[in-house]
């Protein structure tokens, strides 16, 4: 096999190993379950509340799935920063085709972890909540393509954020604008109730379209009434997520290469010094 093929396979194995590690230690298991469980508790109390002729729980669950899927970009970004700080990335750089393997592994471990997290929310959610349109194969195929396209759109953004913001502290800060975008993305509150200018901002982000796509997959046809233009807008969803995906896949290699070029033993040692000062 050629060297790049070998590296991609090694990256796949690396991703699987990291995935396994993240589900076999207490602290990480806790973080995998914490948010889904809190959301399920909220869903449980919302399940019978009515909103515009629908059960509120049914309206909220697909949106939560969309939001969680979008959060993959935050974990991608955080992992990149952490791996750079502790020297994992430099090891990859010192290995032939190691950066390629590293990137494959991140996609596998972040996307894989995300799928499990979504299942942790969705499976009990389907039991608690009535009124979702999950009977047809079409629902599941819509859910699949929205998810795949959504990850293609958001994971590169996460990789770029992780390359540009170098410190763990900056990583904490970039979560704030992302949370703000989630707040206006129609996930907690129908977007049509927001002022026009906020609607426009929300529709520029992939987060809104992930939520919309999930609602289109899991809600009955009549629920389309709360959406902009009374439509699930699949074409627009493909368009916006597609633009983000293409832009991300074009820009990410450039940014990652620039970041990798700057890595050396002394840059890792410098960050280590600073981190130890923070602790001490």
């Amino acid at each position: 096999m050629n060297p790049r093929g070998v590296a991609m396979r090694a990256g796949w194995q690396r991703g699987v190993i990291e995935l396994r590690q993240s589900f076999t230690n207490g602290a990480e298991l806790f973080s995998h379950f914490l948010w889904p469980v809190l959301m399920l508790v909220a869903l449980f109390f919302l399940r019978d509340k009515a909103f515009g002729g629908f059960q509120l729980g049914a309206l909220v669950l697909p949106s939560m799935l969309g939001m969680n899927a979008a959060m993959g970009m935050v974990s991608m970004s955080q992992q990149l920063t952490a791996d750079r700080e502790d020297g994992t990335l430099l090891r990859a750089k010192a290995t032939p085709n190691g950066m390629l393997g590293y990137l494959v592994s991140k996609v596998v471990s972040v996307a894989g972890g995300l799928l499990v997290d979504l299942a942790i929310l969705l499976v009990p959610g389907l039991i608690i909540i009535d009124g979702l349109a999950t009977g047809s194969a079409e629902s599941w195929s819509t859910l699949s393509w929205v998810l795949v396209l959504g990850l293609l759109a958001t994971l590169p953004i996460g990789a770029i954020l992780g390359s540009v913001f170098t410190s763990a502290r900056a990583q904490g800060l970039i979560q704030l604008p992302i949370l703000a975008l989630i707040a206006i993305s129609g996930i907690f509150y129908p977007i049509t109730a927001l002022p026009d200018w906020l609607q426009w901002i929300a529709q520029l982000t992939p987060i809104y379209w992930l939520g919309l796509g999930m609602r289109s997959a899991l809600l009955p046809e009549a629920a389309v009434g709360v959406e902009i233009g009374d439509s699930w807008r699949h074409l627009e969803t493909i368009g916006v997520l597609g633009v983000w995906a293409v832009a991300g896949l074009l820009v990410t290699p450039v940014v990652l290469r620039r970041m990798a070029r700057r890595e050396s033993g002394s840059s890792v040692a410098g960050r280590r010094e600073r981190a130890l000062q923070r602790i001490g």
């Binding site: 050629n2 590296a7 194995q13 502790d86 020297g87 430099l90 090891r91 010192a94 290995t95």
Partner: peptide, 28 residues
């Protein structure tokens, strides 16, 4: 290149990490 390690790959096992990193060299 022998790098000064700090806390990278803390969750990996010794044998697992060396097998993994070694696999990149097979085509060479």
């Amino acid at each position: 290149v022998v790098l000064q390690s700090w806390r990278d790959h803390g969750k990996w096992r010794v044998h697992e990490l060396l097998t993994h990193l070694g696999s990149y060299y097979t085509p060479y």
